[in-house]
Simulated scan of single mutants.
Amino acid sequence: MARYTQAKCKLCRREGTKLFLKGDRCYTDKCAYEKRPYPPGHSGRMRHKMSDYAIQLREKQKVRRMYGILEGQFRDYYHRADGMKGVTGHNLLILLERRLDNVIFRLGYANSRDQARQLVRHGIFKMNGRRVNIPSMQVQPEDVIEVREEARKIPVINEAQEVIARRGCPEWLESDGANFKGTVKAMPSRDDIQFPINEQLIVELYSK
């Protein structure tokens, strides 16, 4: 499957905001976006007037890159959200939040969504007592996610647990770090997503 393999910090600079793609580094002074808060390239410092389409495209790319979703997958999520009751933009973000890899990242068992996705694929986690290896699985209220006992000494998982105190766990999730276990208390709402996203721009882009 195609994946972006270049410097991830360039994505944050291109989108003009932190996407938190490199875990704890994004919270320190070493963050490339803190040092160079302008787009990469020779003309990065130049001011460019953006069209309405460009603004919508950048918002879509920002969200897609933040969650680590390929273009085809992202479009499928939009169509699912559009067919659901309620506000399409809100539905889209909630579907993305309910991905298993995102939940593991939110619970503090990985330093980034990309790392969480890799750990899931290696079968590190169990959900409701069963081993899972599909990052895109949609979680439901009362689902219990835990690190398999034989994997609890993996350094990256323990490092991530130290970072969660600084990053915080959303209210719709409950983390039991001592037992390497997390519970989905409720469905996420739009208010639970604090990242600056204007989902209406994405809806306008795909509605054309």
Rank of each mutant, 00 (worst) to 15 (best):
N133Y: 11
N128D: 15
G23W: 09
D52Y: 01
L107P: 05
L11S: 05
P188T: 03
S175K: 11
Y27R: 13
E159I: 07
R131M: 14
D52C: 00
W172F: 15
C26H: 10
A7L: 14
I197N: 00
Y77C: 04
Q200M: 03
C26A: 10
E159Y: 06
I197L: 09
R130Q: 14
P170S: 07
L119A: 12
V144M: 11
G68Y: 03
R65K: 12
G83M: 12
R36Y: 13
R99D: 09
C31V: 11
H90L: 06
K35A: 15
Y77P: 02
Q200G: 01
R14E: 14
A178M: 11
Q200D: 10
S136T: 14
V103W: 07
A151G: 00
R152C: 08
G23K: 10
F74T: 07
S175H: 11
R36S: 10
I69L: 14
I154D: 03
R80P: 03
E146S: 15
M50C: 06
M137C: 07
P188E: 05
D24L: 08
K208F: 01
G83C: 09
P37C: 11
E171D: 14
G41V: 07
A81M: 09
E159G: 02
E71C: 08
C12D: 10
A81T: 07
N158E: 13
V120C: 08
F195N: 00
I69D: 06
R64N: 06
G23V: 07
R99H: 08
C9N: 04
L57Y: 11
D82H: 07
C31D: 12
K185T: 08
V203G: 01
V103D: 04
E97H: 04
S136P: 05
L201M: 13
E142D: 15
D52L: 05
R80S: 09
R47W: 07
V120A: 03
Q115A: 14
R80Q: 14
E59R: 04
L205F: 10
M66Y: 14
I145Q: 02
P135V: 09
Y33G: 01
K22L: 10
S207M: 12
L173V: 03
R130K: 15
D76C: 01
D29I: 11
Y206S: 00
E199H: 03
R3N: 12
H90S: 14
V103M: 07
L119T: 04
R47Y: 11
K60I: 01
C31K: 11
A186W: 02
I69K: 05
Q6S: 15
R65V: 02
C12Y: 10
I145H: 00
P39M: 10
G83Q: 15
I104H: 06
E199W: 01
I124D: 00
R121T: 14
D143A: 10
R98C: 13
P188M: 03
